[in-house]
């Protein structure tokens, strides 16, 4: 059980990086010898990020590449120092009280391994037990449970470098949880995994949150992760919080529209379309329409299609599908809508 409520408070967080720029070309290489030329450029990664996360919740942090997600994650993990702003995790300031802070969080980076490449998985676990000073009886109970739920038994004695990506991610999750942290930070935990592995990881994270009350913060580009897990989504773009709401609200407000695809036994009719309906380019005997259900109800639109008798020889309506926009559509439209200005 978590030993403290992992409430995360982030207020007006700002961070910029100084990067060395180098003009291309061979003459520029010579210019680098002149002491006056020191072409540094400042890139603002976070321009005032504010949010609060309550203990025991699952929050998704999403945003396009370069939006500042990883910077937020690194600051919350205590490995990066912001320029200004206030951050507390369970009452501790991550970078200022780093040693105490990192002892009570678990972090998994999907792209990087934290286990020791040459050590068998179980030796790595034993090393983590000693690093986090977990009392042996507690360690045994936790290890047994994690080995069972994450199905690690088959490869506990293999060096980490020999594991498949799916096996490695499961081992990484277990490694991050041996000290039973009340807060688990996951940076793209399902990246590169096949569908069954993704489902297994998601189920495990959900159970961990429900059974142990572990607070979970995850970043991902896989919107199915968000849909399956996150009660709440924080969208970061261009160093700011673009949206912070339950996922359904985000979906509803960003793209409430529906798409209707109708096929006909013959050429589709030409229609005078009512307000709020747009015709999409479609081929052959189909007709694709985007519509706003608040302005015209789906049955009315279908009715319109069946009674398209105005033309000389109407083709009968064969089939109708109505789709909600995919999550990917929602998010990419959202990103486009909030794209940074020129």
């Amino acid at each position: 059980m978590p030993s403290f409520p992992a409430r995360i408070v982030v207020e007006d967080l700002r961070k910029s990086y100084r990067v060395a720029t180098r003009p291309p070309g061979s003459r520029a290489g010579l210019a680098a010898w002149l002491p006056s030329r020191r072409p540094w450029r400042t890139i603002a990664a976070l321009r005032g990020v504010t949010f609060t996360i309550e203990p025991g919740t699952i929050t998704g942090l999403i945003g396009p590449n370069g939006a500042g997600k990883s910077t937020v994650i690194k600051i919350l993990s205590g490995i990066l120092r912001p320029e200004s702003g206030r951050v507390t995790v369970g009452g501790l300031v991550p970078w200022a009280q780093r040693l105490r802070h990192v002892g009570r969080i678990g972090v998994v980076f999907g792209q990087r391994s934290q286990l020791w490449w040459d050590l068998p998985v179980d030796d790595g676990f034993a090393l983590l037990r000693d690093i986090y000073r977990v009392p042996p009886p507690l360690y045994r109970t936790r290890r047994t449970r994690l080995v069972e739920t994450l199905r690690l038994a088959d490869f506990l004695d293999q060096p980490v470098r020999q594991l498949s990506l799916g096996q490695r991610m499961r081992a990484e999750l277990a490694a991050a949880l041996l000290h039973a942290p009340p807060l688990l930070i996951l940076d793209e935990p399902t990246i590169g995994l096949d569908a069954p592995s993704k489902l297994a990881i998601r189920a495990f994270i959900r159970d961990l949150n429900r059974q142990d009350g572990t607070t979970i913060l995850l970043t991902t580009h896989d919107m199915h992760d968000i849909e399956a897990l996150a009660e709440r989504v924080i969208v970061i773009g261009d160093g700011r919080v673009l949206a912070d709401s339950p996922f359904e609200t985000l979906r509803a407000t960003t793209l409430s529209g529906r798409r209707l695809i109708a096929s006909f036994d013959g050429p589709p009719p030409t229609l005078a379309l009512p307000e709020g309906v747009t015709r999409l380019p479609a081929t052959g005997q189909t007709l694709a329409l985007d519509f706003d259900p608040a302005r015209i109800a789906a049955p009315d639109l279908i009715g319109l299609l069946t009674q398209a008798g105005g033309s000389a020889a109407p083709s009968p309506l064969a089939d109708v599908t109505i789709t909600r926009p995919s999550i990917e559509d929602v998010i990419s439209r959202f990103y486009e809508h909030h794209a940074p200005g020129p």
Binding site: V107, Q114, I131
Partner: peptide
């Protein structure tokens, strides 16, 4: 940087 994630 991940070396900093350990309480050591």
């Amino acid at each position: 940087a991940h070396e900093l994630l350990r309480p050591i």
